[in-house]
Design a protein around this nucleic acid. Structure first.
Lengths: 226, 226
DNA sequence: TTTTTCACCGATAGTACTATCGGTGAAATT
DNA sequence: AATTTCACCGATAGTACTATCGGTGAAAAA
């Protein structure tokens, strides 16, 4: 009953969408090694040879998946930032900055899984994409922290801010994964942990501004001042 | 000139070691998909068919690699803890707790890479091993934090401690990777960041003990708690 | 010395996949 | 209505890998 007589190009486009959707699902479920033209075509309901009507070769499918996935991720991140910024309360904004990415990951865990996997697999065709995505995440998170009022105005602080963002980012992924695996039932609690982690690190950053030169010799005095 | 007439079993053992060494190197360089009996045998200097003299099949090689890798990792971790505990000074010990794992990772980055990769690859034969290793890391880190004086004596605190350990662990990996990629030249600085991150989170843990009004979690009425 | 063992070899059957090719019928164009 | 286009099909060549098999010579055992 659904078929409203499709034009040829509409039908082709639909098939292409089915292929991509099937590929994404297989990629998540079986990994890049399990993503074969046979499986994708079968899952999309066409002959294996017809796969090549839509993609030049297997590589091109991977490339398209990377673009699509990247676009979804970026969109998801933009939306998350927008939401977080809306909160008027300072503390609440800080917390939202961490809770929303957690939720975003939990909404599309397959994208993160695929990205993390590709990032560490030297044989992956998606490696470049994964590296870019990871870098974008770092910068994104660094910008978030900066938006919370922790500006870095010299080289050392900028590097530290990037390290903190990198670490918080990794922790966010780990906690989101733990939540999905059922180990951490409460996402809000995970957000609290992230807020607490970032507080400690950002205190280091703040105090660094007042301190003098020597790299880590300085932090011996850091301890916990009021 | 090196050959001191080896006995047959000695020669076989040597070949086996060569196979394992070659396999580990290929696994790191090309990923699990690139690890073929052809490549491993060739790299070890024997015929492809002779591979089966040493291993029942490809799976068994993977299994052995997982065991060997796991053993090395555990040994490395044990040693790291031992060293960290030796430091008499409190602050220094806290710092060593984070610096030493960083160094351990940098000494054997291939083991972490392989583990992380396997952990996120559903098609990996090493997945179970990777999951166990990751769990061991979490517990290990939680124990380290407990050793620093942050005991968790109720269910909520234990769960939080585990989350913190998980997050710190992920951050440790991320910073070590960043160091290896050349983004963070100074490992000591990375250790400082980790100390700072943990400080903030552990403060949350402490304050939880003193009672009611922690940051935000309290308002959820979170607790069941006997 | 004679016999047995066995680590290693080359050849090859079997499997799974990628990518191409010519054919087909319905949609689109003329 | 006649013609062209093209999404899809089945068949298949080509490639890369796994795993087995019988053979060989030197070490080990008798």
């Amino acid at each position: 009953m659904t078929s409203t007589q499709l034009s040829r190009s509409e039908a082709k486009d639909l098939t292409r969408r089915r292929l991509i959707r099937a590929a994404l699902s297989i990629l998540d479920a079986e990994g890049e090694a399990g993503l074969t033209t046979v499986k994708v075509a079968k899952a999309a309901g066409i002959a294996q040879s017809s796969f090549y009507v839509h993609f030049k070769d297997r590589q091109e499918l991977l490339r398209v998946l990377a673009e699509e996935g990247g676009e979804r991720l970026r969109k998801s991140m933009r939306e998350a930032r927008r939401q977080a910024r809306e909160h008027p309360d300072d503390l609440e904004r800080h917390r939202e900055t961490f809770r929303i990415p957690l939720e975003a990951i939990c909404r599309h865990p397959e994208l993160l899984r695929i990205q993390v996997r590709a990032r560490h697999d030297p044989s992956s065709s998606l490696r470049e994409f994964a590296a870019e995505t990871a870098a974008a995440y770092r910068e994104h998170h660094a910008a978030d922290l900066a938006a919370l009022g922790y500006t870095a105005d010299n080289e050392r602080d900028r590097r530290r801010l990037e390290m903190i963002a990198d670490g918080i980012n990794a922790a966010t992924n780990a906690l989101a994964m733990g939540h999905l695996e059922g180990r951490y039932p409460d996402l809000d609690e995970a957000a609290d942990i992230l807020v607490a982690l970032s507080r400690g690190a950002l205190r280091l950053l703040k105090s660094a501004r007042s301190g003098a030169g020597a790299d880590h010799a300085a932090d011996q005095g850091v301890e916990q001042q009021a």
